[in-house]
Amino acid sequence: MTKRAVAVLGRGVVESDAEVLSSDDLGLTRGDGCFEATRVVTGADGSHRIDHLPEHLARFQHSSHALGLPDVDVTAWQELVRTVLGAWDVPGEATLKLMITRGRESAPSGPITGIATVTPLAERSLRQRRDGVSVITLARGTSSDAYAAAPWLLGGVKTLSYAINVAAGRFAEAHGADDVLFTTTDGYVLEAPTAAVVWLSDARLHTTPTGATGILDSITQKALFAAAEASGFPTRYALASRDELLTTDGVWLVSSGRGPARIHTLDGIQLPHTPGLSDRIRAFTGF
């Protein structure tokens, strides 16, 4: 059985198979909640390094506000993170996941549900980081500016409602690909279900802008751009079509768990590869 550590707000560490949700919890019945996930690296001595925890807690707060949930008690969540990591001693890479739900439907004035888990990083993610990924484009059904005047669509909010993203992953697998890159109705690339897209063109790193596109503000992508800029590598936010990606010097999917994974094949077309470039991208992101 895969080792897993679980802690609950107000309860602390619980057994990994303990019941932590009621059958009428709105996170379960409606997907009404939000979450964050980031990488933890555990040393042989049991020490832990968490990637960008303050930034993830800030985005957690943003998502909570967008959903009309109570303010995230940062101090309480930091303590919960320390608590769950205190029960985790498996050396190597793992995923720390923080989840909030609105609580029980039968107790609308009751407390929210808060859960933190730690699980080993999937071998599949490690392999894709090393070897790259094959990706197919998939229409997301919205234009590149669909979220500009529609805040109720929850653009840029990391909600528990992940059915579409999971369905996209199954679609990719059914069609012999590792991942999906969503596109807009007006022909631009957005993001992958769980990753930002970054490409190198004209000696500059690019990514799709947030805001009106409705995509998530990627913490790992921002860390990549900050490190690149500090090394004299210019960056830019811009819209691009799938065909434009085919003419770039490299394309990556960037996320907090898998890290940067080079897209080696897009819609069955082999993309250019510059030896050593992905190593540099990984270094920029701390992977």
Results as ranks from 00 to 15, higher is better:
residue 224 L to G: 06
residue 136 I to P: 08
residue 147 Y to V: 03
residue 158 K to T: 13
residue 103 G to L: 03
residue 200 L to V: 00
residue 168 A to W: 07
residue 231 S to I: 00
residue 145 D to R: 15
residue 24 D to Y: 01
residue 114 G to L: 09
residue 178 D to E: 03
residue 260 P to C: 09
residue 38 T to C: 10
residue 162 Y to E: 11
residue 275 P to R: 14
residue 196 A to G: 14
residue 8 V to P: 12
residue 284 F to P: 10
residue 166 V to L: 15
residue 173 E to K: 11
residue 158 K to L: 11
residue 83 T to I: 06
residue 18 A to L: 07
residue 135 V to P: 11
residue 126 L to A: 15
residue 263 I to Y: 09
residue 116 A to P: 12
residue 198 V to E: 01
residue 197 V to Q: 06
residue 238 A to D: 14
residue 23 S to M: 06
residue 273 H to P: 00
residue 7 A to M: 14
residue 259 G to Y: 00
residue 166 V to K: 13
residue 85 L to D: 00
residue 42 T to F: 10
residue 58 A to M: 00
residue 93 E to H: 14
residue 207 T to E: 02
residue 260 P to N: 09
residue 254 V to C: 05
residue 102 R to G: 13
residue 278 S to M: 11
residue 247 T to N: 07
residue 262 R to T: 05
residue 3 K to I: 02
residue 183 T to Y: 05
residue 160 L to P: 06
residue 256 S to T: 11
residue 94 A to H: 02
residue 276 G to K: 11
residue 39 R to K: 10
residue 42 T to M: 07
residue 4 R to V: 12
residue 182 F to S: 03
residue 188 Y to E: 00
residue 267 D to G: 07
residue 109 S to T: 09
residue 20 V to T: 10
residue 153 L to S: 05
residue 163 A to N: 07
residue 263 I to W: 08
residue 187 G to S: 10
residue 182 F to E: 01
residue 77 W to A: 02
residue 259 G to H: 00
residue 260 P to S: 07
residue 155 G to Y: 03
residue 62 H to A: 13
residue 287 F to T: 12
residue 1 M to W: 04
residue 165 N to P: 11
residue 123 E to M: 10
residue 139 A to H: 09
residue 51 D to H: 09
residue 8 V to A: 09
residue 250 G to K: 11
residue 219 I to G: 08
residue 217 D to F: 00
residue 198 V to T: 08
residue 124 R to N: 09
residue 269 I to N: 06
residue 263 I to C: 13
residue 212 A to R: 12
residue 4 R to D: 01
residue 23 S to L: 12
residue 162 Y to I: 12
residue 29 T to R: 15
residue 49 R to A: 09
residue 106 S to V: 04
residue 94 A to V: 03
residue 110 G to T: 02
residue 230 A to Q: 14
residue 232 G to D: 06
residue 157 V to Y: 08
residue 236 R to F: 00
residue 56 H to V: 00
residue 47 S to V: 05
residue 61 Q to F: 05
residue 171 F to C: 06
residue 47 S to Y: 03
residue 79 E to K: 15
residue 62 H to W: 04
residue 129 R to N: 15
residue 3 K to G: 05
residue 105 E to K: 09
residue 171 F to W: 13
residue 74 V to E: 15
residue 79 E to D: 15
residue 179 D to Y: 02
residue 120 P to L: 08
residue 145 D to A: 13
residue 102 R to Y: 08
residue 116 A to V: 13
residue 271 L to N: 02
residue 145 D to F: 05
residue 281 I to N: 08
residue 54 P to L: 01
residue 233 F to Q: 11
residue 81 V to S: 13
residue 251 V to E: 01
residue 45 D to M: 04
residue 217 D to P: 00
residue 136 I to N: 06
residue 134 S to M: 07
residue 179 D to K: 04
residue 108 P to A: 08
residue 14 V to S: 14
residue 125 S to K: 03
residue 131 D to T: 14
residue 123 E to N: 13
residue 207 T to N: 12
residue 12 G to W: 14
residue 262 R to P: 10
residue 181 L to G: 00
residue 179 D to T: 03
residue 145 D to H: 11
residue 220 T to L: 03
residue 206 H to M: 03
residue 192 A to R: 01
residue 274 T to S: 10
residue 283 A to H: 15
residue 178 D to N: 13
residue 192 A to W: 01
residue 210 T to E: 12
residue 163 A to S: 14
residue 159 T to P: 09
residue 75 T to Y: 06
residue 30 R to F: 05
residue 208 T to A: 14
residue 186 D to H: 11
residue 201 S to D: 10
